[in-house]
Amino acid sequence: MKNLALYKIPIGYMLIYVVLILASGLWLFLLSQGLDSSEGVLHTIQTIMHTPKPKSLHSFIEVAAPHLFAIGTLIFVVAHFMLFSTKVSQKVSLVVAMLLFALALFNIFSYLAISFGLFVSGWIKLVSLLLFVLLFLFLLGLVAFSL
């Protein structure tokens, strides 16, 4: 970063906040799929693979609408800090950010495919969610590396 010592503080905290937002989002998703204290995370993931919880169009839109706004804004805000980076090329930042936007859309709309019966198994949601979270963590790593 270029001579912006004080601005490193909010950017650093932003990384922690985003990790917590991702973690609480994952937890909420698992809870919506039946996670409770008696059956662990692995069992819930197996359940999602075999019989994902049915979701009406209304429930889908209720989740998708705020997430389209929130995830889009969050990616923009995090990725725009790469404009200050002197350690990572803007080309790399651009590819990561665009891929992340694509994965976010794929992740949000994957449950629609399950709801409409295009996929019986929930693997598509799990894969898209995993890829999205991993790539977001990678972007956070790039921002942290640039600080």
């Binding site: 909010p10 905290y13 932003m14 906040y17 985003v18 917590l20 937002i21 609480s24 969050l74 805000v77």
Partner: peptide
């Protein structure tokens, strides 16, 4: 967490 992050930033 989301709202606080944006307000504080």
């Amino acid at each position: 967490l989301f709202m606080t992050l944006f307000a504080m930033l």
